[in-house]
Amino acid sequence: MSINHIKRRYQKDLTKLPKIFRNRVVKQNNMFTLPTFENKLPILPKEEYKTMTQTGYTEGDLVYITKGEHKGTISTIFRYSKEYDGLFLSDIIEKKIIPKDQWFDQQDSFLVDYPKLIPADSVKLAAKDKNDKGEDYYIVAEEVVFKGKYYDDRYKKWLPRRFVKHHEHIEVPWPNPPTEPKAGELSTEGETVFEKTWEFQSLSVPPFPSTIVNELRNPYSKHKARVLTELQARRLNKPTMPLSKEQQIYLAKKQQSETEQPTELTEEVQDFIGERIANHLNSITNPHLKAHLDALSKNTINH
C-alpha cells in the first residue's frame, strides 16, 4: 500500500480511544488553536458515517432547526459533514476572528464569516409547497420513511422515495444535486464503460492464465482454514510407541478374559449343588429356623 496508508497505523485514532483519553488528546491538540477554530462536536468512527438514505436529507434540501440559537429557522443544506454528523447551512453564519498571518488575499478585517456547524440531532427535514391560494408554506417532517425505488437521472442512482412518517401521502422529493456531475480528467466515457468485452462461455477455460493465480490469491494466507494432507498430518503428529512384549501379553490376556463369558451350569454341577443344599437343610433341627426358611422359600423375586 502507499506510504499514507502505512502512516495511518501510527496516528492516534481518536474514535478508538476511550472517552476520557479522547478528551485529553483533543484538549492537547486544541492547546495552540484559537477558540474560534475549536471543534466542539465529537468525531464519529468510520463505521458510523451516515449516507443519504440514513440521514434522510442531502445537499440542497431544506431543513428546520429545532434546538439551539437558531431554533425555528428554515435553511438549505450547503454541506453535510459525515465525520462530525453536522450540517453547514447556507443561512447560518458566524463570525470568526482570524489572526493576520492567516488572512487570505484581499481580506481587510479580522472578522470573517464562516458557516456554522450544526449538529444533526437539532435539525429536521423540511419541505416547501404551495397551498390553494398560491402561497408558500412549509412542512417539517418529524421522521422520514422510505418506500419504493426509482432511477434518478440527476443523481445517476437508484433512490428510494421519501415520505413523511404517519402522513405517507406526503412525498418529499430529492432535491436537485448542487453540481452536475462533470467528467473529470480520470473519468472513462459511459460508452466505453458499458462495452462488454467478456462473456462466460466455457467451463474449461480458466478466467486468466493459471500461472498468475498466486499473484491474486495468497496461498499462505493465515486467514484461510488450513487443511493438512494425510502425509502432513502424519509427519506433524508423533508416532505411536510400539508395545513391549509384556504389554502385548497382558493385553492379549485381558482380551481373552473379556471374551470369556459366564457359561450356564451343567446338570452335574446343578445336581451337586442341589444335593449339598438338600443335605444341609435336612440336617437343620431347629423348628423356628425351619419355619423361617419355609416362609422365605415362598418369596418370589421381582425382576
Partner: peptide, 10 residues
C-alpha cells in the same frame, strides 16, 4: 457490475 463486463486483458 461495470468491471464484471470486462475481459481479463481489459
Amino acid at each position: 457490475s461495470e468491471l464484471r463486463h470486462k475481459s481479463f486483458d481489459d
